[in-house]
Nucleic acid binder design. Sequence first.
DNA 1: AGAGTGATGGGCT
DNA 2: GCCCATCACTCTT
Length: 177
Amino acid sequence: MRTLPRRWFARAAPLVAVELLNKVVVVADCSGRIVEVEAYTRDDPASHSFRGETMRNAVMFGEAGHLYVYFTYGMHYCANVVSGEIGDGQAVLLRALQPLTGVEEMARRRGRTTNLTDGPGKLCQALGIDLTMNGIALDDAGGLHIVDDGTPPPAAPRVGTRVGITKGADTPWRWRV
DNA sequence: AGAGTGATGGGCT
DNA sequence: GCCCATCACTCTT
């Protein structure tokens, strides 16, 4: 059971994404196993970093192992883990978790007892992630960290392509357990 | 199980 | 203005 150090994330986003599967996200008493992720790189038209650095996406261009949180659709937050080296503009979006601990608290935050963390906006609501956590380091005390409990990444994760991008063939992928 | 749709607000062209 | 890396609700197979 070790908290992943920030340097662990300083590799290419697609690689970090696959290895994040089956790791555990911990926020205070709540935790969940990562079962779906998506990698975003600088050359991906769907990536926030595609059009360069702005005030909003600055964290994504910073040091790996930090949390990039953004607000979208007028009501949802999404959490990403910065990867690569400084300036790369790479991140991995946390898309879904399997709830492990603190289920009651997550249910209270969600206002329901089912489908607590099966979507990027849902897991942020369940874990209480909002813009105040944007930019925090994942190996700092408190806040959010990601731990390895010994469960290996799946040998053959389900891979999915993304569609709906106007530019040509899309490289970013989505991995599921 | 899957398709359609309204809610809602900040960021970018 | 228009676009979203969304969600939940509703109605249809």
